[in-house]
Every structure is written in C-alpha cells, then in structure tokens.
Deep mutational scan, measured.
Amino acid sequence: SELMNSSKLIRMLEEDGWRLVRVTGSAHHFKHPKKPGLVTVPHPKKDLPIGTVKSIQKSAGL
C-alpha cells in the first residue's frame, strides 16, 4: 500500500492556503481562511497510510 510523508501532505495543505493554528502532541491542526472546518494531520510521520491521506485531503477539499 502507498504511504505518504506527513511533511509532504502539510506542504500540499499550505499551498492550498491552510495555516497551522494549533499543535496538540503530534496532532497539527490547520484552518483555512475561506474553507470550513479544521483539518488535523499527525506529524511528524514518515508513513501515513494512503487512506488517512485521502481522508485528510477530502476534509481539506483538495
């Protein structure tokens, strides 16, 4: 199965306009000026399962 580095996923979010608002432990929480909701990324993780990545991307509207 495909894995993604959390840094790469965070870069994709930031390029889309998401900004880090809070860190709780290894959970990084992002908000967007125009899009609704809060997106949480486990970080640092070298090997996020593709299912997790897809669900984060979906929440972020990517």
Rank of each mutant, 00 (worst) to 15 (best):
S1H: 13
S1C: 11
E2F: 08
L3K: 14
L3N: 12
L3S: 12
M4K: 08
M4V: 08
M4Y: 09
N5S: 15
N5T: 14
S6A: 05
S6N: 02
S6Y: 04
S6W: 04
S6L: 03
S7W: 15
S7H: 15
S7R: 08
K8P: 03
K8W: 14
L9M: 09
L9W: 03
L9E: 01
I10N: 02
I10S: 02
R11Y: 11
R11S: 13
M12H: 06
M12I: 14
M12E: 09
M12P: 00
L13T: 00
L13P: 00
L13W: 01
L13M: 06
L13C: 02
E14L: 07
E14A: 09
E14N: 09
E15M: 10
E15L: 11
E15W: 07
E15P: 00
D16Q: 05
D16K: 04
D16G: 05
D16H: 07
D16E: 05
G17F: 03
G17D: 06
G17Q: 04
G17A: 03
W18K: 00
W18L: 00
W18Q: 00
L20A: 08
L20N: 05
V21M: 07
V21E: 07
R22M: 14
R22E: 11
R22K: 15
T24D: 11
T24Y: 11
G25F: 14
S26A: 10
S26I: 15
A27S: 14
A27M: 12
A27W: 09
A27P: 01
A27C: 09
H28T: 05
H28F: 06
H29K: 10
H29G: 07
H29R: 10
F30W: 02
F30E: 00
K31F: 09
K31Q: 13
H32I: 00
H32S: 03
H32Y: 01
H32T: 00
P33C: 08
P33Q: 09
P33S: 08
K34P: 00
K35Q: 03
K35P: 00
K35F: 03
K35Y: 02
K35I: 03
K35H: 03
K35L: 03
P36D: 09
P36A: 10
G37M: 05
G37F: 04
G37V: 03
G37N: 09
L38P: 04
T40F: 07
T40L: 08
T40Y: 14
T40P: 04
V41H: 01
V41P: 00
P42K: 04
P42Y: 04
H43G: 04
P44S: 06
P44Y: 04
P44I: 04
P44M: 03
P44E: 03
K45R: 15
K46N: 15
D47R: 11
L48K: 01
L48P: 01
L48F: 05
P49N: 08
P49L: 06
P49C: 06
G51W: 13
G51E: 15
G51I: 08
G51T: 12
T52F: 14
T52L: 15
T52C: 08
T52W: 07
T52K: 07
T52H: 06
T52M: 14
K54E: 14
K54H: 09
S55W: 09
S55M: 11
S55F: 11
S55V: 07
S55A: 15
S55L: 11
I56K: 01
I56Y: 01
I56L: 03
I56P: 02
Q57Y: 15
Q57G: 04
Q57R: 09
K58D: 14
K58S: 11
K58Q: 15
S59E: 12
S59R: 13
S59C: 09
S59D: 14
A60S: 04
A60E: 02
A60F: 02
G61H: 05
G61E: 05
L62W: 05
L62I: 10
L62M: 07
